[in-house]
Computed example of a mutant assay.
Amino acid sequence: MTEGRESVSHPMCLEVCLEDSQLVLSSFTASHQGPITLEFQPTQGLGWDYAFVTIEESDVAGSDIERLRTELEHDPTVTEAEYLGTIGDDNRFKLRFEDGVPLFPPETTEMGVQVLSARHADGDWNILMHVPTHSTLHEIQSHYHDHGITFRVKRLHIARETDIGAETALPPGQREALLVAYRNGYFQVPRDVSQEEVADELGISKSGVSQRLRRSIDRLIEATLDP
C-alpha cells in the first residue's frame, strides 16, 4: 500500500521557519541584525562541512570586514572563516562548521531534495526546499524532531498536473534573466556560471542581473506558495 501511495505522490515546495540555539551560526545570528544568506556546497573529503555565507551590510570598510570575520570565528559552530569579497552590500565568507545542528538534513542530495534558499532575517531562518515525495517530507520533519529543533511550516505547495505555470506572472526581463541563468547552470551546486557571465549574455550590468533574479524568484514564490 505504501508503494501505491508513493507512486502517485506529487513534488512539493516547502518553506520552513527555524529558531533554535542548537543550529549552526546561532551565536552569530543572535548578535547580528542584518539579513544573512547561507549556501552549502559539497567539498571533496569534507562533505557538507563548508558553506558560503553572504552578510548584507552596507558601507563596510576594512575594519568592518575584520569585525565580521572575528564574530563568525567566535561562533562555537564555526572553525574557519575566510573573507571572499564584497559586491554592493553583500559581504561573502567561506565557513567551515564543526558543531551545531545543520539547517537541513545532510542527506538532502540522496533524498532528492533541492535547497532553493536559506536566509536568516528578523530572528529566524527561512529555508525553502523542493521536496520530491511525501515520504521525503517526513524524513525532513524527523531531522528537526530528532534534534529537538523548533520549526514551523510556513508554506507547503503541492505541484499538480493542472497547475498553471507561474512563469506567466513574470515580466519579460525577469523571465529572460531567470531562464538564461537556469540554462547556463547558475543554480547548480557548484555554479557553472557567475552573475557577471549571465550579465554579459543578457547585455546588462551585474547588479541588474541580481535585481532581476531576486525579483523573479520572489514573484515565483508568491505565485506558487502563497495560498
Rank of each mutant, 00 (worst) to 15 (best):
V209F: 02
A61N: 12
Q188T: 10
R214W: 06
I36R: 14
G173K: 12
D99C: 07
E39R: 15
S207F: 03
E161S: 13
Q211E: 09
H134Y: 06
S210R: 06
I149Y: 12
P76M: 14
I204G: 03
E71N: 11
V60M: 13
I221C: 03
F151I: 00
Q195F: 03
H120Q: 12
V113C: 03
P227A: 07
H138T: 09
L23I: 03
Q44M: 08
E57Q: 10
G88K: 03
E161H: 09
L179D: 02
R119P: 00
V153P: 00
R92T: 14
E139T: 08
L84K: 11
G100T: 02
P106D: 13
V180G: 06
A51T: 11
E222P: 00
H138Q: 11
E82C: 15
H120Y: 15
T77C: 06
S205I: 01
D218K: 09
S26M: 14
F104H: 05
L72H: 13
L18C: 14
Q114A: 14
F52T: 13
D90N: 07
E110Q: 12
A121G: 01
V53L: 12
T70A: 15
F52D: 13
H145T: 14
S117L: 04
T133F: 05
I158L: 05
L103E: 01
R96G: 04
V189Y: 03
H145I: 09
G112M: 11
P102I: 03
I127A: 05
N91S: 08
G173L: 14
S58V: 08
